[in-house]
């Protein structure tokens, strides 16, 4: 044990050096730019504050995204141009169409349920007594702390199915039997409902996120707004719909957007629960399989581009929202 600790000292030293170095450099830069008077400060400040992020994002995401777009017009080994063939495959192959349909279901259902559930829970939890609130939030937040692989272990113990002549290991199957069903369905095979059973896992994970962020936002609603609403005689549900929700609209959209993007990229759950079999594959999972298991780099890249495109309406909506917020301010 002591040996392990001694061994790890250099690692912590590296870490500290890194952190100290980073903050020293950033701190000095911020301080130095802060000293500059007059019009020169503003552009320099923008460069210092925004530059590092832009650099990281350009190298780590912009270039890879451009590369992916280029590869999506090439064949499986990226040696020849194939035009829109890969896209043609995605939109005409029945298996792929099913993948697109599943993804559509995911992005419609999972983010709305997570966000709505998080919102309702946050309003109720806000009214609970201190300790109860903390416990409730912690329990619902708990799944966030579990990796997706851990989550699939956990949910395997819920959906597992065996023939009724043997003892069940899955809680869900057993519960259905307790309620008098002789032979529960094999949930994971039950098309198309198996998609919803997988979505349940995502909702289970993301509701905690929605709850925590929304509840913080509700508590931040200024007192005077609530006071005014109370004086106007707004009752509970009315106050919720006409005061609380509009006041946190910005956060609501941020939460919904974040979960929606997480859902678009969902891949671990599907990979570990079904491997994309039984008509449960989604775009992100198919992208991974095509690119890294089957080495169809072209098709995999085209699927990634489909993800990029899918997010465009969301960007548009967020832009409108931001403009609106600015004009109100």
């Amino acid at each position: 044990m002591t040996e392990v600790l001694l061994d790890s000292l250099p690692k912590f030293a590296t870490m500290l050096q890194m952190l100290v170095g980073f903050f020293a450099i950033i701190g000095i830069l911020i301080f130095a730019v802060g000293l500059i008077r007059g019009r020169a400060q503003r552009p320099l400040a923008i460069i210092v504050l925004l530059g590092p992020s832009l650099l990281l994002v350009t190298v780590g995401l912009v270039f890879p995204a451009i590369r992916t777009i280029i590869l999506s017009f090439k064949n499986s080994s990226s040696t020849d141009w194939v035009g829109f063939d890969n896209y043609g495959f995605i939109f005409t192959n029945p298996g792929q169409q099913r993948v697109l349909l599943n993804t559509l279901c995911w992005i419609i259902i999972a983010p709305i349920i997570s966000t709505a559930l998080g919102l309702v829970l946050s309003v109720i939890a806000d009214q609970m007594k201190g300790k109860a609130e903390a416990i409730a939030k912690s329990l619902i937040f708990l799944p966030m702390a579990i990796s997706f692989v851990g989550a699939s272990v956990i949910w395997n113990l819920v959906y597992a199915y065996r023939d009724p002549q043997y003892e069940q290991t899955g809680l869900f199957s057993q519960m259905v039997m307790w309620f008098g069903v002789d032979n529960p369905p094999n949930w994971i095979l039950m098309e198309p409902w198996n998609n919803f059973f997988l979505m349940m896992i995502m909702i289970w994970v993301e509701t905690g996120f929605a709850l925590v962020v929304l509840s913080a936002s509700i508590k931040a609603i200024p007192k005077d707004v609530m006071e005014a609403a109370t004086l106007d005689g707004a009752s509970g549900p009315r106050q919720f719909v006409f005061v609380t929700v509009p006041m946190i609209r910005g956060t609501l959209i941020v939460v919904y957007t974040t979960i929606l993007i997480a859902v678009l990229k969902v891949f671990d759950i599907v990979q570990t629960m079904t491997g994309g079999n039984f008509n449960t594959s989604v775009v992100a999972n198919e992208m991974y399989n095509q690119t890294f298991v089957q080495f169809n780099v072209g098709r995999g890249s085209a699927l990634a581009v489909v993800l990029f495109v899918a997010v465009i309406p969301l960007i548009y909506y967020n832009i409108r929202q931001l403009r609106r917020e600015r004009s109100e301010r």
Partner: peptide, 13 residues
């Protein structure tokens, strides 16, 4: 642009 980059799949990068 930064916002949209959220959707770039990790695996492709």
């Amino acid at each position: 642009t930064i916002f949209a980059l959220q959707v770039v799949p990790l695996q492709m990068s």
